[in-house]
């Protein structure tokens, strides 16, 4: 494993830059799920550039780490990260995303390099991850299995079937993340279907649960490192995030931006907000 030393500042800058790629993808295609893309980006950057043993070079190695983007509608952020990781060209995905006949479909497609499983229908990633973690343990692989869910997604019953089985089989090689941005397409998650007791609920299924700031890469790093020290249970990281994080006042914490496509003026404002945030990080 070719692991670089953890550099929270560099990864935070990268995460802000990749949000701009997402923005361009969505502007060009006229569709996408920008709010969740921006909230989950820090988790993806931490996983792909700090935590996971995965790269274009080892993508077929059975001992690699495995990832499933269960909240498949945040595919733009996933594509941006995979492109930055070298699985395909950033320019290609920006130009081809959601275009007629494109391989870059509006939900993850495992005919593309770097994508393990197709997703899009919510509530699939965790149960599939359970199967992967079981298989990796059976095969004595060092692999870890990661999946990222949305907080609206945890209303799906199949998610709880996954929590149940992972707890039952004590899958310590499995780490799930809930991108807890507290907004879903119809409004606040707590109004749509409450998850106020999420931490206790997941814990009661036999999981180690860590709550952290999901838009702080140093804290995410810490949470993922802590998860690796737990050897008798799976870990769920509840990543408390802000929907639209980094895009500035115009889009942060606004349910309407779940899948809003910015106009040119909004685009300019978001770019400005991302740049300002980047400058702030660089001059910390």
């Amino acid at each position: 494993m070719n692991k670089q030393e953890f550099d929270a500042k560099a990864l935070t800058v990268r995460s802000l830059e990749l949000r701009k790629v997402v923005l361009d993808m969505i502007m060009k295609s006229g569709g996408g799920h920008i709010g969740g893309d921006f909230s989950v980006m820090d988790t993806l950057v931490t996983l792909y550039f700090d935590q996971m043993n995965i790269s274009p070079e080892n993508q077929d190695d059975p001992d690699r780490d495995y990832f499933i983007m269960s909240k498949g509608h945040s595919v733009e952020s996933y594509y941006a990260v995979l492109a930055a990781k070298g699985f395909f060209e950033t320019e290609t995905v920006v130009n081809e995303f959601s275009q007629f006949g494109s391989r870059f479909i509006g939900h993850p497609n495992n005919e593309l390099p770097g994508i393990e499983m197709n997703s899009g229908s919510l509530g699939h990633g965790l149960p599939v991850s359970v199967g992967m973690a079981l298989a990796c343990r059976k095969e004595n692989r060092a692999s870890r299995v990661y999946t990222v869910m949305g907080d609206g997604e945890v209303a799906e019953g199949s998610v709880w079937e996954g929590f149940m089985a992972a707890g039952h089989y004590k899958l310590a090689n499995l780490c799930a993340v809930v991108d807890r941005n507290r907004l879903q397409i119809s409004g606040a998650t707590e109004q749509v279907m409450t998850h106020e007791n999420l931490h206790a609920q997941i814990e009661s299924f036999g999981w180690n649960v860590i709550e952290t700031d999901g838009n702080d890469i140093a804290k995410l790093h810490e949470a993922f490192e802590q998860a690796k020290t737990v050897t008798d249970r799976p870990t769920c990281i509840i990543a408390n995030t802000v929907k639209g994080y980094g895009g500035g006042e115009i889009m942060e914490n606004k349910a309407a931006w779940h899948h809003h496509v910015p106009n040119q003026e909004e685009y300019d404002q978001i770019v400005k907000a991302l740049e300002a945030k980047k400058e702030g990080v660089l001059h910390e």
Binding site: H124, V128, V130, E139, S158, E161
Partner: peptide, 27 residues
């Protein structure tokens, strides 16, 4: 060692099998 019980949860049954198959098993 080659048997997996998932309980009365058919959705889990099929998804778990898919994950295992992706990692090289024949469920």
């Amino acid at each position: 060692e080659q048997s997996i019980e998932v309980g009365i949860a058919e959705q889990n049954l099929v998804s778990i099998a898919a994950g295992m198959a992706h990692c090289g098993e024949k469920p």
